[in-house]
Design a protein around this nucleic acid. Structure first.
Lengths: 267, 267
DNA sequence: ACAGAATCTGTACGCTGTGCAGAGACGGTC
DNA sequence: GACCGTCTCTGCACAGCGTACAGATTCTGT
């Protein structure tokens, strides 16, 4: 009661908001890479003394954490709530949206995967994925494992894509980066690395959207390998799927054995 | 001719070797986390003035790069060269070996995925994966895409696993970390996150070896979905696989369409 | 013996995160 | 309207960071 929400605290009005500080941090990050978001830089950007920042956040780690949370929150709730669309489409839309949002701030990506990522927005992302994968016909445990597999893939892809870029600042267009990689891989010594030299064009495309979607689809294929497809639209795998626990009738799958092993640990 | 390999350079003998510096950096990293490997700390550890390090490496980034390269080199060439073993087994052995080696140095993991990872040992890893996946029956392009998918998964998993740990220093035993996560997830509000709350046990196991292997197997399933299995050992998928390019006869698969899209970009 | 080159040290500069003391502004109570 | 406690922000300071520069020392090749 005494500390109700609308009451102003004593002392002078705050010159800033937390959001303005996060804005400044993000723009510094975008301009100068992961190391550019210094407390002093943020303070200068918003026009206060460096230690004034500590009125809003206890330390720099809290600034980073809040920024990561905000970036994760920008993607939630929108794209994949529409349950009329097939679940695979929604997963792909979510994955592409995450990639677009995060790789727009390459300097922030390193901070993201450098911390625990256990805030409410991260949990919301997990929750949405669980809903999505339940629609796909996966059981509770399978959906959770699949959700983390997807999270690992999405954040791993983005992290490696950003890390492949040497210079700070915004990511160049995808085609430019692939061209640069093509030129770099052209120097691969074919005597020591014959297969890599032969696959140089594909390797240059490791950072492409096509590779990203290709890998995502292989994962979705693997996730649904133990789940039987309802016939009706075999062309694109968009058919509604129904759950199959041990699936004793459909192609004795390795997933049956795997699930048992995992249940030992998680249960 | 003038600068032949065995010739000593003028000047006093070096007090150190590059390897000793990397040893010092790694041990600092292991003790104190990613920020502990300072140039001054390294120099103190090996008993020289801070700037003596710059006799061996041009800057700190070069030290980190060399360290990453060395860690990547520790895993190559050994585990998965034995072509008599089934390829899935070899991929799993490689993935588990990589995870064991890298998560033994959690402080180094962040440095690893923070840089381009384009050294010779990284290329060797790619080359070995290409060989392995060629044995699995994938064509050149498919093998390269699958290799990167696996790399993303392995490094993404390890990065997220390490990032989930708040304190620096060596990773606690897996069971302890899962216990801690179980306790943390017990506080998940079931009203706002019903599915996450219900899957808390599985989510606690996100950092487990079981989850890691489970995800790896789903990926391998997805990679080989467009490749027909030779009957003979259907129980574990260890049978030798034969290549299938467009696979027009085996279950009209989405991979056919996907590959076309990708060939447009990479070709 | 001498020239040149390499190694290492001492010193210094600008940067980082952040703790402490103090000045000023404001809300709540008299 | 005066006062008090609390909050905000500043100036200063400290320890640590990466690293550039100058100089002393030690070696190799001539």
């Amino acid at each position: 009661m005494s500390t109700e929400a609308g009451r102003r605290r004593p002392g002078p009005r705050r010159a800033l908001t937390e959001d303005e500080i996060l804005d400044a941090a993000l723009s510094l990050l975008d301009d100068g890479g992961a190391d550019a978001a210094s407390v002093r830089g943020i303070a200068a950007r918003v026009g206060v003394a460096p230690n004034a920042v500590y009125t809003y956040f206890p330390d720099k780690a809290a600034v980073v954490k809040a920024l990561v949370e905000r970036l994760l929150g920008e993607v939630d709730h929108d794209v994949f709530a529409d349950r009329s669309r097939p679940w695979r489409e929604r997963v792909e839309a979510l994955a592409l949206d995450l990639r677009a949002h995060l790789s727009a701030h390459p300097g922030a990506v390193g901070l993201m995967i450098g911390g625990p990522m256990d805030g409410p927005h991260a949990l919301t992302l997990n929750e949405r994925l669980l809903e999505l994968l339940a629609d796909a016909g996966l059981d509770r445990t399978g959906a959770a494992r699949a959700a983390y597999l997807l999270i690992v893939y999405v954040f791993g892809s983005i992290a490696l894509e950003v890390a492949a870029q040497h210079a700070p600042g915004p990511l160049p267009p995808e085609s430019d980066r692939i061209d640069a990689r093509t030129r770099a891989f052209a120097a691969t010594p074919a005597d020591r690395f014959p297969r890599s030299a032969a696959a140089a064009a594909t390797m240059a495309g490791y950072v492409s959207t096509e590779q990203y979607v290709w890998g995502l689809r292989r994962i979705l294929d693997g996730i649904t390998a133990g789940v039987t497809d309802v016939p009706g639209d075999p062309d694109d795998g968009r058919g509604v799927l129904r759950a199959a626990g041990p699936v004793p009738e459909a192609r004795t799958s390795r997933s049956g054995r795997t699930v048992d092993v995992l249940d030992d640990a998680a249960g």
